[in-house]
Structure formats: structure tokens, C-alpha cells
């Protein structure tokens, strides 16, 4: 009993000294869960092919990541944050206020958001307007007057006579998800703008415009299926009439059982998303804290690895994982800027 007591005391005394002895030699990355599948692949290869340790990547969401990133320049704060949208002015100001003055911005590519269903059923051919009418909370009245009514549509045929008479049933991410934000902004708002009186509203009453164009119906036609996209894919197989909303990489990995809908005449395929024909795609970024370059080993090398042609290039390994690359000129420029560590100025 006495001996055990002595060991326990010893353990307590030595534990803090262990903590103090450890400096950080691992790059610390946080941020978007959309960029996570790509950043992790780069990190893993970087760890294998360089003398540096494999960076540690946390999936905190874009907003959460930027908050951690902008907390300060202390060595305990993250070195890099991933984002599935551009840093906002308010976030940039927060960074400046907390002493994170110099930030390098790297645009790595695009991610498409698809509306998919099982391959057992015919492929859907939708326009953004169809999507808006099917999923928005309130839609323009059917009589052509410029008034709004609660969404009355039950089937896709009600929305557009050319579509099948299936019940509208769409599984998608919850409001906390960045994918949902992007879907609302690109797909719903895109469809919303096809009504001229709603488009005109944007100038007059921006908050009301946003409420109408981003509002998703809550009567059961849009089902919040959680953040797990694999689960949505499984449910699409189980329920052939349902449609699902998720990132392109999940469609890519499951292309033998599900198909992406054609939207505004563009197929949900690699080429059409890269060309910009496919309307629902968003940019993916990462941000680097310049104050940590040279303090934490390997950050500059990681940037070089991410922006190398072998990684984010047209035939790079990230495209195998579903990343939509930038076009040649943009990629060249981005690589130049990133390797020169150009400061972000918002």
C-alpha cells in the first residue's frame, strides 16, 4: 500500500514536467468538414514523403475553425484553417483584433452539391426554379399575381408538368451545416431570382428577400437527415422516390447506385462542374497564419505540397477524391501567390 502511494505521488509530480518539455512539431489544422476529406489526403502524403510529421486535422466546421484560428498567434492556436466559403469581413476583423495580422489565403478548388436519386429510377432533369418551387417555404401564387403563398406542391409534377408524379421527398443536411448554407444560397436563391418581383425585393428589403429565398419548407417534404452523408445515400437506396442533397465526392464514390440530377441542363459530372456549367458549386479555401511559418516546422512545405500539380492539378490525386480543380491560369496564379505567402487583405 505504501509503495503504491509513493508511485502515485511520483506520477503526479512528473506529469506537469512532461507537459512543459513538449514543444509542438506537428502542424495543427482545423476547419470545414467539406475540405477535411481533401486536406487529410494531402496531409497523409505530406507526412509520408517529407521529413515532417503528418499534420493533425480537426473537422470543426468553417465558422468554428476560423474562430479558433483567429483566437491569437499563441503556439497553442491552429496554424491553418480550412473553409468552404471565403472568410467574412467580420471574421477578418476578429483576426486583426487578436493579433493575427498576416494571413495567406489559398483557393484550392470547387465542390459541387448534387441532388441525387437511386439509379433504379429515371434521372431527374431540374431547373433551379423547379428546386426553389419544390423546397422553398413560401412560393409565388400560382395565379401569376405577385403574392406569396405557403408551398402547396405535393409532387414534382405539380411543380413542373414535365417531371414525374412522385412525391417531393428530399433528404438533406440540417441548418448547422455549411452544405445547407451553400445549397440555400446557390440553388434556392438561384431559383428565387428567376421571379423578377422577388429579385427586385433584394434592393428594397434585403432581410425579407433572404427569408423568402433561403427559407426551406418545414412540412415534411424536406427531411433533415443529419450531417452524415453516407446515411443519406443509404436512405436513397432504401426509398427509390427520395432525393438527397450532398457533396459531389459522395456521388462520385457511390456512382454505381445513385445518379445526380441534371440541373439547368448541366449534368452533375466532373467536367461540367469544373467548367462552371453546373450551377451549384462552391469554392474551397484554406487560410495560413503567417506568424507560425518558421515556428512550426513544415507549414511552407505543406502549402507547396497542397498547391502542387500532383495534388490539386487537373490530374492530381485530389481529383480522384472528388475535388473539382481550378482552371489552368487560376491554378498557376494561386500557386504563385501561395508560395510567395501573399497577405490577405479584405
Amino acid at each position: 500500500m505504501k509503495k503504491i502511494g509513493r508511485y502515485i505521488i511520483l506520477a503526479f509530480l512528473t506529469a506537469p514536467s512532461l507537459v512543459l518539455a513538449s514543444g509542438r512539431d506537428v502542424i495543427n489544422i482545423v476547419g470545414s468538414s467539406t475540405v477535411y476529406p481533401f486536406a487529410t489526403v494531402v496531409a497523409e502524403r505530406f507526412g509520408k514523403s517529407s521529413k515532417f510529421k503528418t499534420p493533425k486535422i480537426e473537422s470543426t466546421g468553417t465558422g468554428g475553425g476560423i474562430k479558433l484560428f483567429c483566437a491569437g498567434v499563441d503556439i497553442n492556436t491552429p496554424d491553418i484553417t480550412n473553409a468552404s466559403r471565403r472568410m467574412k469581413q467580420s471574421e477578418f476583423n476578429l483576426c486583426q483584433k487578436n493579433g493575427v495580422k498576416k494571413i495567406v489565403e489559398v483557393l484550392v478548388g470547387y465542390d459541387g452539391i448534387v441532388l441525387a436519386n437511386t439509379k433504379l429510377k429515371p434521372q431527374m432533369q431540374l431547373s433551379l426554379r423547379d428546386i426553389f418551387l419544390a423546397l422553398a417555404k413560401s412560393v409565388p401564387a400560382t395565379d401569376g399575381s405577385e403574392t406569396l403563398i405557403d408551398n402547396p406542391y405535393k409532387t414534382w409534377q405539380d411543380v413542373n408538368p414535365n417531371l414525374p408524379a412522385n412525391k417531393i421527398e428530399v433528404l438533406g443536411p440540417p441548418p448547422t451545416s455549411g452544405t445547407r448554407d451553400a445549397f440555400a444560397e446557390l440553388a434556392l436563391e438561384g431559383g428565387c431570382q428567376t421571379f423578377s418581383f422577388l429579385k427586385a425585393l433584394k434592393k428594397k428589403n434585403k432581410s425579407r428577400y433572404k427569408a423568402i429565398c433561403h427559407g426551406v419548407r418545414e412540412d415534411g417534404a424536406y427531411i433533415e437527415a443529419g450531417e452524415n452523408d453516407n446515411l443519406i445515400v443509404q436512405k436513397l437506396v432504401a426509398n427509390p422516390n427520395a432525393m438527397g442533397v450532398f457533396g459531389f465526392s459522395f456521388l462520385d464514390q457511390n456512382s454505381d447506385i445513385i445518379q445526380g440530377s441534371i440541373i439547368n441542363l448541366a449534368t452533375a459530372e466532373f467536367e461540367s462542374i469544373a467548367d462552371g456549367d453546373y450551377p451549384i458549386s462552391r469554392p474551397l479555401y484554406f487560410y495560413v497564419k503567417k506568424a507560425h511559418i518558421g515556428v512550426i516546422p513544415g507549414i511552407a512545405e505543406y502549402i507547396t505540397a497542397f498547391t502542387s500539380e500532383a495534388a490539386y492539378g487537373e490530374d492530381g490525386y485530389l481529383t480522384d477524391k472528388g475535388l473539382i480543380p481550378l482552371d489552368d491560369a487560376k491554378r498557376q496564379m494561386m500557386r504563385q501567390n501561395a508560395n510567395d505567402l501573399q497577405n490577405l487583405d479584405l
Binding site: V19, V26, Y36, A43, T54, K56, I57
Partner: peptide
């Protein structure tokens, strides 16, 4: 601790 970590941890830190 919900993170992508490749290297096998060698100690508590």
C-alpha cells in the same frame, strides 16, 4: 480529439 491523426501516439502528450 476528434481529428485526423496518422502517427501512432507515443505518449500522453
Amino acid at each position: 480529439m476528434v481529428a485526423f491523426i496518422v502517427d501512432i501516439p507515443q505518449g500522453v502528450t
